[in-house]
Design a protein around this nucleic acid. Structure first.
Length: 459
RNA sequence: GGCGCGGUGGCAGAGUGGUCAUGCAGGGGACUGCAACUCCCCGUACAGCGGUUCGAUUCCGCUCCGUGCCUCCA
């Protein structure tokens, strides 16, 4: 295939295929964002980083890309959090939306073009539900509105599950008002003291799945090119989105009538197990960025292929940190050179266009950094960095943080000691120079002698 | 039970029907007063068993192991 073709693994066809946009002048994608009732963990961050990288690659290839990623700000979990803390729902959702966006910015994740909130799209959801009722794909029962799965024979295309299989394996009790065990909620009733909206089906709130169907359609139109999210959303969430949107738009027999391509990222694991709140083995981004730079976390999240599981470990972080230091050091040594036109080296672009093969890109980056300094190399590194969302910082700034936590007073003292040591070295008084080095080490300062003089950093 | 995904050198992690991934860690060397930094060199990996093939880590089958979804979940 030509280097102009982006290949991607489509979960809907379970194959790697050439990406052919509906409109090459305007690519549209949607990815399910977080439910905001708590700090985002590394797993949430992986989704954001992966799709941010996809958007960067798509933008490199296509003139216009619209990326929509939602905020789910009405949900039973949020209501529970509000009950438990006594804090109003809106306060909780605003707080954690804000924290989420700040955390993602720290990871160099560009804000989506549109970040719709579920609570601002209730009207669209109600309209969608009414359409589904009219077309006999949904029905009202005891204040609920339910999607009738048996009326949609194409149901199960994404997850590869027939309705029967799903029932057989179901571990949940079937609510008595459901006509079919597989039916799922579009609207559920709220009590007067709960959050809710008036609707033709009574006072209530939307089900989770209908939110994304409504927001994706409103902001992108149907069908659009790519729908993404974590692998755990494939069933039931994405399956249900397809059912709702296709059935409401006369595409009941065409699962691709909603989104042409489905992309799913793998999980972050801890010691081989999925990172999740129920297992209690999760690490929040908020905490992670206390110990590691955002860019280090970002590169670590890109160090495995996006569909593979990624085991979170200090060793993985260390590896990313070492590489970034190496790259920034290289850039620093080329600070006098002017970067010219950005050209991404072929092997790297090919890797990126081949289903976002970021581990291969990292390998190529390791080779690239060994080349001799040149304006061309500098621009290559910077343009690759831009595609990956790294290396955009001023190198001096990157290394400056190594001095964090050292007071100005200490800096003076350190520099004085280093000068003294140089003097001792010049006089071949090595006993004294070693003593000074030990003294610095005792202060937590490590030194190294380079051609350009002695450098130090906090250990 | 149903539907998936994966098992690559100490670790992480790509990839391929027959020459190299790459990195981290480790070993050796150069440099250094000694270190650190930097640079150079090194390690004969593809779960097991069958099959296809001139040839399989790569294709097919089976077995074993791990893990995910089927319930809220990125």
């Amino acid at each position: 295939m030509t280097r102009n073709t982006i290949k991607l693994h489509n979960s809907l066809t379970r194959q790697k295929e050439d990406f052919i946009p509906i409109d090459a002048n305007h690519v549209k994608l949607y990815a399910c964002g977080p439910t905001v009732y708590n700090y985002a963990h590394i797993g949430n961050a992986r989704m954001a980083v992966v799709f941010d990288a996809w958007v960067r690659v798509l933008r490199h290839r296509y003139p216009k890309v619209t990326y929509v990623s939602n905020i789910t700000d009405v949900d039973d979990k949020i209501m529970k959090a509000a009950d438990e803390t006594g804090v109003p729902i809106s306060e909780i959702t605003e707080k954690y939306t804000c924290i989420y966006n700040e955390d993602m910015a720290t990871l160099n994740v560009n804000a989506p073009d549109i970040q719709p909130k579920a609570t601002e799209h209730i009207g669209e959801m109600i309209a969608l539900i009414e359409t589904l009722i009219t077309k006999d794909f949904a029905y009202e029962a005891e204040g609920h509105v339910l999607f009738n799965v048996p009326n949609n024979p194409a149901y199960g295309a994404l997850s590869g599950r027939s309705r029967d299989e799903q029932i057989a394996g179901a571990r949940v009790e079937v609510a008595p008002y459901k006509r079919d065990a597989a039916d799922f909620v579009l609207w559920k009733p709220s009590t007067p003291d709960q959050v809710g909206w008036d609707s033709p089906f009574g006072f209530g709130r939307p089900g989770w799945h209908i939110e994304c169907s409504a927001m994706a359609e409103k902001h992108l139109g149907l069908p659009f090119d790519i729908h993404g999210g974590g692998a755990d959303l494939k069933f039931p969430h994405h399956e249900n989105e397809i059912a709702q949107s296709c059935c409401a738009n006369n595409k009941a027999d065409d699962p691709a009538g909603f989104s042409r391509v489905w992309l799913h990222n793998g999980f972050v694991t801890v010691e081989g197990e999925k990172m999740s709140k129920s297992l209690g083995n999760f690490l929040t981004v908020h905490d992670a960025i206390k110990d590691h730079k955002g860019e280090v976390i970002r590169l670590t999240l890109l160090s495995a292929h996006y569909r593979q599981p990624l085991d979170w470990s200090e060793q993985a972080l260390h590896q990313s940190e070492v590489l970034l230091d190496k790259l920034y050091k290289k850039l620093e040594s080329m600070s006098e050179l002017n970067a010219n036109d950005a050209v991404v080296p072929d092997p790297i672009l090919s890797a990126l266009y081949d289903d976002l093969n970021t581990p291969l890109v990292i390998a190529e980056l390791n080779k690239l950094v060994k080349q001799e300094n040149s304006a061309a190399l500098k621009s290559q590194l910077l343009s690759v960095g831009n595609l990956l969302g790294i290396l955009q910082e001023d190198p001096a700034n990157w290394f400056a943080s190594d001095e964090d936590g050292v007071s100005d007073e200490d800096v003076k003292k350190i520099e004085l000691l280093i000068a003294e040591r140089m003097e001792a070295k010049d006089n071949k008084d090595f006993a004294r120079s070693d003593k000074i080095r030990d003294e610095l080490l005792a202060m937590g300062i490590e030194i190294k002698d380079t051609r350009d003089g002695t450098q130090w950093e906090k250990v």
